[in-house]
């Protein structure tokens, strides 16, 4: 990775009581060496488990494992400025949006700012109370927006409802968003890798990409695909390829050489409908390499191999 690599940014949305704070604590407790910076927006409360906290200064909590948590206050401009100036530079930015925030609006900061990269929008849904909360007409639009904007939806508190109710909430979610990855959880227990895709990034930086396809280290949600080749791509062509790949490719990451400009490299990251192609300044790469994940049963190979074969054959 280059020094200037943008900070991966994940927006965590979900209505009040959906379990965002529990998930945040879970992720901080199992950070696996990642320095996660959490921005909290529900009135700036910092409900982090006491035993994790090492010190508090000026509204920022520092954790023993290198993670930190600060309040977003009332102003996204200030919050993002503070994050971008934060030292030491974190590995992941996790934004716990307020219960009434539109996550797509917050995610748009990460899409716009060159020093940030959108890792995705994660929305938590409270299986027990979702339908009730949604029936308040003043809240309907925002609750639905939180679901439609997400690439990963965590149906939480599944231990508190019977199967029938869980299924009916799932069906409601699916009607709003058919393409997002939908996982069930109890007490906000979802792995950091599912949220941050760290193993995917690591795989990309390794030389032997082929092994990835056979790795079962990651929890059993995904199937994977990878590609390595000598030839380059045009940025616009890459966007077109990924648009054609469609929503079943949950996440796609890679580096590629510019077909028209030798030794000019681009990074590419797709999550859901968002495709980010940005200049990549490095001298440590040759050729083009990509990794992708999709939900098990997606048949990624069938979708992606033909698309990328075009270049190999050419």
């Amino acid at each position: 990775m280059t020094i200037n690599a943008p900070l991966p940014t994940t927006v965590l949305a979900g209505f009040l009581g959906s379990g965002k704070t529990t998930l945040v604590n879970h992720l901080l407790r199992h950070s696996e060496g990642q320095r996660i910076l959490v921005l909290v927006n529900d009135f700036g409360s910092l409900p982090i488990d006491e035993d994790l906290i090492r010190s508090e200064e000026g509204g920022t909590l520092t954790l023993a494992n290198g993670c930190a948590c600060c309040s977003m206050g009332g102003d996204l401009f200030e919050a993002f400025s503070a994050v971008l100036d934060y030292e030491p530079r974190p590995d992941q930015l996790l934004i716990e949006a307020s219960g009434v925030a539109e996550p797509a609006r917050i995610a748009n900061f990460a899409r716009a700012e060159p020093d940030l990269a959108l890792n995705g929008i994660v929305t938590m849904v409270d299986a027990e109370n979702f339908e009730v909360a949604r029936s308040d007409e003043r809240m309907t639009a925002i609750l639905e927006e939180q679901i439609t904007a997400a690439q990963l939806i965590i149906l939480n508190k599944c231990d508190l409802v019977d199967e029938e109710k869980a299924a009916s909430v799932q069906e409601s979610i699916r009607r709003l968003n058919a393409s997002a990855l939908l996982v069930s959880a109890e007490q906000g227990q979802v792995s950091g890798d599912t949220i941050f895709a760290t193993s995917l990034s690591k795989a990309l930086s390794k030389t032997d990409l082929v092994k990835l396809q056979h790795s079962h280290k990651h929890e059993d949600l995904f199937e994977r695909w990878s590609y390595e080749g000598k030839s380059g791509f045009k940025p616009a062509e890459m966007r077109e390829l990924l648009n054609r790949a469609g929503s079943s490719v949950y996440r796609f990451k890679g580096l590629f050489e510019d077909l028209d400009k030798k030794d000019t490299y681009w990074s590419v990251h797709k999550v859901g409908p968002y495709i980010d192609i940005a200049p990549y300044r490095t001298d440590a790469v040759t050729g083009s390499r990509f990794v992708a994940i999709g939900v098990k049963g997606t048949d990624l190979e069938d979708i992606l191999a033909p698309l990328f074969k075009v270049r190999v054959d050419a």
Binding site: D75, L76, F77, F80, S81, L84, N108, R111, A112, E113
Partner: peptide, 18 residues
């Protein structure tokens, strides 16, 4: 249009309204 798209310019030009 809107703060997210304006933010990178504001940050680099030192436009801090608050």
């Amino acid at each position: 249009q809107e703060m997210a798209a304006m933010f990178p310019v504001m940050r680099r030009l030192g436009i801090d309204l608050r």
